[in-house]
Amino acid sequence: MNLLEARLARLALKGDQRAFAELVELYQDKLFHMAYRMLNNRQEAEDVVQETFLRVHKNLERYDESLKFSTWIYRIATNLCIDRLRKRKPTYSLDAESNDHEGLDGYSMIPSDNRTPESEMLLSETQRIIHEAIDSLAPKYKTVMMLRYIQELSLQEISDVLDMPVTTIKTRVHRGRDFLRKKLEHKL
């Protein structure tokens, strides 16, 4: 798999548009899915996906083949998502961790702005509650949870994507999971 992608990347670098189109096909929907879950907005998710591929195309010659192609592209996409989430939030000190919420910072206490006019077709109340709970996670936890549960990456892979130590990722998965447990425990 990784060999195929590295080969496609090399062909695309030589100017082969079809090879690049194949890379788009391989990743576009995965990236869109994640970006949509992160941003909760279809238009923004599409923009992020487009921007991701533009950056990939522009930086193909700098692609380091020792890194998995998926790791590289997820890194670009998650950074773009995090940037957008940060810009949305008000600027007062939210990074101060509060004790009441077991290490989750102030971001998680602000209700996420529901920018989606096209309200999602959720089949059940259960699904709605789960998605609401996920949306209330702070960006740094949300990112980790998305990579873990949507892309089903291992902790090591997430650590590669975010370029952070595995121990940090582990802590975030644990805290994120526990935060969601508390949110969901009374409702379900």
Binding site: M121, Q127, I134, M145, Y149, R177, L180
Partner: peptide
């Protein structure tokens, strides 16, 4: 929670 997350995200309903 773990099962719900996998279920909700991995097999998420199609985005409208």
């Amino acid at each position: 929670t773990e099962a719900l997350l996998y279920n909700a995200l991995e097999h998420a309903p199609a985005i409208p």
